[in-house]
C-alpha cells in the first residue's frame, strides 16, 4: 500500500501539498512515483512564473512514460528544487521529502479546501483501483 503521510493534503492528480503560512510546497505522491516507475527526468517551472490552480506546471518522466504535474493551488512560484535536475531518482526514493518540487506563494488559500485529507486520498486510491 502506498505511503500517505497524515499531515499533508492531496489532489486527485496525485500531488501532495504542505502548507506553511502562505507558502505551499508541492510534490507528487508515493502512489504517483510507484505508478510511473523509474523517474529519469523532472521539468520544473521558473521562479516568478504564475499559475492558476490545476494548471500543468511541469512534467515527470520515467523510462516508459511522461506525466504532467498540476499545481493544486494557484500562485507565484517562489522556489524550485534544482537538485532534481541531477538526481531525478530521488522522486522514487523520497517523494515526500527530498523530492519536493515547487514552492508556491498562494493567491487564494481557500483553494486548499478543495484538497483531500490523507484519509480521503486513501479512500480515493481504493476507489480508483476498483
Amino acid at each position: 500500500m502506498a505511503n500517505i503521510p497524515e499531515e499533508l493534503r492531496y489532489s486527485k492528480d496525485h500531488e501532495w501539498v504542505q502548507v506553511e503560512g502562505e507558502i505551499a510546497t508541492i510534490g507528487i505522491t508515493d502512489y504517483a512515483q510507484e505508478s510511473l516507475g523509474d523517474v529519469v527526468f523532472v521539468e520544473l517551472p521558473n521562479e516568478g512564473d504564475n499559475f492558476n490552480a490545476h494548471d500543468a506546471f511541469g512534467s515527470v518522466e520515467s523510462v516508459k512514460a511522461v506525466s504532467e504535474i498540476f499545481t493544486p493551488v494557484g500562485g507565484e512560484v517562489v522556489g524550485t528544487n534544482e537538485d532534481l535536475n541531477d538526481t531525478p531518482e530521488v522522486v522514487n526514493d523520497d517523494p515526500y521529502g527530498d523530492a519536493w518540487m515547487v514552492k508556491v506563494k498562494m493567491n487564494n488559500p481557500g483553494e486548499l479546501d478543495g484538497l483531500l485529507s490523507a484519509e480521503e486520498y486513501e479512500e480515493y486510491l481504493k476507489s480508483e483501483e476498483d
Partner: peptide
C-alpha cells in the same frame, strides 16, 4: 508484465 519490482532500469 511491463516491469517487476526491481524496475526497468535495474532489469535493463
Amino acid at each position: 508484465p511491463v516491469q517487476y519490482p526491481a524496475g526497468t532500469i535495474a532489469e535493463h
